[in-house]
Write a protein that binds this DNA or RNA. Structure first.
Lengths: 141, 141
DNA sequence: TTAAATGCAAACGCTTTGCAATTGA
DNA sequence: TCAATTGCAAAGCGTTTGCATTTAA
């Protein structure tokens, strides 16, 4: 079922603004911040309004159509839920974001459940550190 | 070597304000936000100033005397580096914060290095999810 | 004595809000 | 038609900044 259908099904209106927010979200190759989304929206629809962007993102989040990711930038990034790619390695030297597959995290998820009874939600996980390139750079210096 | 000694050694002045920030940080049993710290400071030293708190925290961070932790609250929390307890499980239901020992994270750190060449800095790691109590609550409901 | 640090007020960036005007169903 | 949604402007929050004043060394 498409975002549009889900929106209507839950009794929400399918406004042009909402359709555009959804469109930009789907086009975004990477995680996008509210303000970045707003800028893109504004370029094709100059009447676009930042409040509406935030309100739409909030709604899509409630409907589990988008998920948030926190890369420690002091702002949150969004992407459409169905796209996957939920884990990230963020290099604190060059800012590079590496996608991390589920597989690597299974053992941790298991361990947390067994040892702490904690059901970890790893969908938004971002781990900071240093990427291989920057590690080499530092060694040389 | 104490915070005070390190500060002086690196050529920084040991002002009463800095001493108080360090004192509050040491007394804080849990991770404390800049504003919480400011409030406590203000109660014993009414001339305390929030800019000075931020500047002092920034300095202590540079000197590796305090570390930051991001619990996804939209603000950062601080604690003295020597105290340890760097990993956290944050329950998104009840807000409980569980300390997590290094041990559980070793396999992950290894895997990231081997598979991605990524040197993960797990000192600030906070994993959100659901604690055992809240898991039980939900099952009953 | 003097560079470093403080206090203040103002600005910052991101996000949320109240409210009147508009609009999808 | 009319509740839901928008646009606007203003305020919110946590944080940072410029600058004159004060102070540790």
């Amino acid at each position: 079922m498409s975002c549009h259908e889900i929106l209507r099904e839950k009794g929400h209106r399918l406004t042009p603004q909402r359709m555009l927010v959804i469109e930009v979200l789907h086009e975004a190759d990477k995680h996008i911040s509210a303000e970045e989304l707003y800028k893109q929206l504004h370029s094709r629809y100059p009447y676009a309004n930042i409040s509406t962007v935030y309100r739409t993102l909030e709604l899509l989040k409630e409907l589990n159509l988008v998920t948030e990711a926190d890369f420690g930038e002091g702002r949150v990034r969004y992407h459409v839920a169905e796209k996957g790619h939920h884990h990230h390695l963020v290099c604190h030297s060059c800012g590079k974001v590496i996608d991390l597959d589920d597989f690597t995290l299974y053992p941790l998820k298991d361990a947390l459940l067994k040892e702490y009874g904690f059901d970890a939600d790893l969908r938004h996980l971002a781990i900071s550190g240093k990427c291989s390139k920057c590690r080499k750079k530092k060694r040389r210096a």
